[in-house]
């Protein structure tokens, strides 16, 4: 079986752990627990008929005080950048992280997940912003760890990309 390491990266409280929990365990909790360091989860997938073991590194979120250490990204085949659709600044943080990852491990596949799509009344991103990112070649998916919207799709797209 093929193994690939992928990382969850983004600002704090954007829902990285919740997305992993939804994807791996089909669970969701409203309560917010901050992640310290990193937790590694595993998920078996079949992509285009090929068995894949995805090692998902759920890494602590970046904030004003601490940046994500690039040592965690070492050996990753791809990563999911996560932003919070209700906090515009989390997209800026995701963009900064992407640049640091590229300078550390080079260009590897990534997918941007704009999470919390269930919170429509406080949603901050218009279609034009997302289209602009797609225009730059980014894969952008709206997700909700709460409802499950886009979660499987986001992971599957990255899984396909890391196998290519």
């Amino acid at each position: 079986m093929v193994k690939r390491k992928i990382c969850m990266l983004g600002a704090f409280s954007v829902g990285k752990t919740s997305l992993v929990s939804r994807f791996v365990h089909s669970l969701f909790s409203e309560k917010y627990h901050t992640t310290i360091g990193v937790k590694v989860d595993k998920k078996q997938m079949v992509i285009n008929g090929e068995d894949l073991s995805l090692l998902i590194w759920d890494i602590y979120g970046e904030d004003d005080i601490q940046e994500v250490r690039m040592n965690y990204v070492r050996g990753a085949a791809g990563y999911l950048l996560v932003a919070d659709g209700t906090r515009r600044d989390t997209l800026d943080i995701a963009q900064r992280i992407r640049k640091r990852v590229e300078s550390y491990v080079g260009k590897i596949p990534f997918v941007l997940l704009i999470n919390k799509s269930d919170l429509t009344d406080v949603w901050m991103f218009d279609d034009a912003t997302l289209e602009s990112l797609r225009g730059e070649g980014w894969t952008v998916i709206r997700t909700s760890a709460k409802t499950g919207e886009g979660v499987e799709k986001g992971f599957a797209l990255l899984a396909k990309a890391v196998l290519e």
Binding site: K5, I36, G37, V38, K39, R69, N71, Y72, G75
Partner: peptide, 21 residues
Amino acid sequence: IDFLEGMLPLDGRWFHLPRLL
């Protein structure tokens, strides 16, 4: 050991990963 995937071999320099659950 799952967390070793992609980490080795080293390039001659030591490093550490803090706080791995």
